[in-house]
Computed example of a mutant assay.
Amino acid sequence: MARSGWHILKDDAGVTLCRHLPPRFDFTVSTVLPSGRAVRLAHQIRQDLWRALQMLRGFSPVVRLEQIAEGWQVMAGGRVAVPVTTAVTARAQAVLDDPSNRARWVRSAGCAK
């Protein structure tokens, strides 16, 4: 575990950021973002996902980035201790789709446009 308390798992396909091992997706939402620094991008997404869903009992964010031709295929979600509702999934997807979040993440991670 890194000093930050987050596990950064790298493999040939991409990067996974999680607090607990093994990473577990009890729910997932996805998007595509341009190429940039994967770990920085994952942390930015994780922070905003946490802010949106911290009230969800037992929530622990997990973010997976896989390299694709368009940049990064982003899968975000995580562990939860309660059943996942459509409202939770919709809120998480709204975080990924928010134009201001996306612009900030792209800037922060030095993504190619």
Rank of each mutant, 00 (worst) to 15 (best):
R91C: 12
R51S: 11
G14C: 10
V88Q: 02
L17G: 05
Q54A: 13
A94H: 06
Q47R: 13
G14W: 10
R104L: 12
A112P: 00
P34T: 12
T16A: 07
G58K: 07
L53K: 13
W50E: 14
E70A: 15
T28R: 15
S108Y: 12
I8K: 02
W6K: 11
R107L: 11
R40P: 00
A38C: 03
T89D: 00
G110F: 10
I8T: 09
P23R: 06
A90C: 03
G58I: 07
T85K: 03
V106H: 02
C18M: 04
R24H: 10
S4W: 04
L65T: 04
W6L: 15
T89Q: 10
Q47E: 12
D97Y: 07
A87P: 00
V95G: 06
T89C: 00
M1I: 01
R91I: 11
S35F: 13
A81N: 02
L53I: 11
R79L: 15
V95N: 08
R57Y: 06
V74N: 05
V106L: 01
V32A: 12
A87K: 11
V95E: 08
D26H: 12
V82R: 08
V106D: 00
A112C: 05
R91V: 13
M55T: 09
P23E: 04
T85Y: 02
A90Y: 01
G78H: 06
S4L: 11
R24D: 07
Q54E: 09
R37W: 06
W105A: 05
T31P: 00
L96M: 04
G110H: 11
F59L: 06
E70W: 01
A2T: 15
L53D: 05
R102Q: 14
A42M: 09
K10C: 05
P22I: 01
W105C: 03
L53A: 06
R46L: 01
L56E: 14
V80N: 01
P83H: 03
G14A: 09
G77W: 05
K113R: 14
I68D: 04
V106K: 03
V106W: 00
V29E: 09
C18L: 05
W105H: 04
D97W: 08
V88K: 01
G5I: 02
Q73S: 12
M1Q: 04
R104E: 14
W50Y: 14
F25T: 08
R51H: 13
P99M: 08
S108C: 13
T16I: 15
V84M: 06
R79V: 14
